[in-house]
Design a protein around this nucleic acid. Structure first.
Lengths: 112, 112
DNA sequence: TTCGTTTATTCGCACATCCGAATATGCTTA
DNA sequence: TAAGCATATTCGGATGTGCGAATAAACGAA
């Protein structure tokens, strides 16, 4: 199998990897997975300043991970594709297993 | 469903998200998915300077995404858990679909 | 139109990360 | 042990990114 073209890797990096490269943005994605929300509600729920949330949402929207829609007096954000959370869950699962495996190795002293 | 604990999100970010937040590291992961390789082979294959590859590998190892083992005169790196590539593939698939959906919306002018 | 709420942006600064070049370290093998 | 190749690290500088505070802009409601 040939290597993935560098161009596609750049796309992947620019859009998704970079998007999830901030703990607060990951929190925002999970929160929006529960239900679409407007900026202030997100800021309250996650205990972040509103400008911070707004900046992260702008980035996530630019990267196409979330979409926004005005509803009355507020702007409601939602996930463009909820499967992004499945991907994050897969990552968590892999990490957990790797950490456990590693812990197991450390626990049992090498039988020399 | 309650929010993921911030502590676990920090872990996820520190280990995996941060690891894949560089196009060159993504290339390295895919290359190691084809077959375990030593540093110089990777540098040649991906056309990167050896110190660059070495630095990225050190980071990936610290984050537990790759493991290293000396074999004769070279150090062979391999993926700790190949499923990380499935995750990256899922990301690529999602991105491709989102981009196509978006293109479709742009193509068809709103029928007013 | 005007007020008030909601959201977005700007600015300056701090911090992290990446790279190239050079060099140091480590290990194998003769 | 010594030579030589493979790998790791250091350094400086450039770049990118996040934040807080303040403010601007946008929009709905009266």
């Amino acid at each position: 199998m040939p290597l993935i073209p560098l161009e596609e890797i750049q796309l992947l990096h620019n859009y998704i990897c970079q998007s999830v490269n901030d703990p607060k943005r990951i929190q925002i994605l999970y929160a929006l997975g529960e239900q679409p929300m407007h900026v202030t509600a997100l800021a309250d729920l996650l205990d972040m300043p509103q400008p911070t949330v707004s900046r992260h949402l702008a980035l996530l929207r630019q990267r196409l991970l979330v979409t926004s829609e005005r509803s009355g007096s507020v702007v409601v954000y939602s996930l463009t594709d909820p499967r992004i959370l499945d991907v994050l869950d897969d990552m968590r699962r892999i990490l957990r297993e790797v950490l456990e495996r590693q812990a197991g190795v450390l626990d049992s002293p090498s039988q020399s």
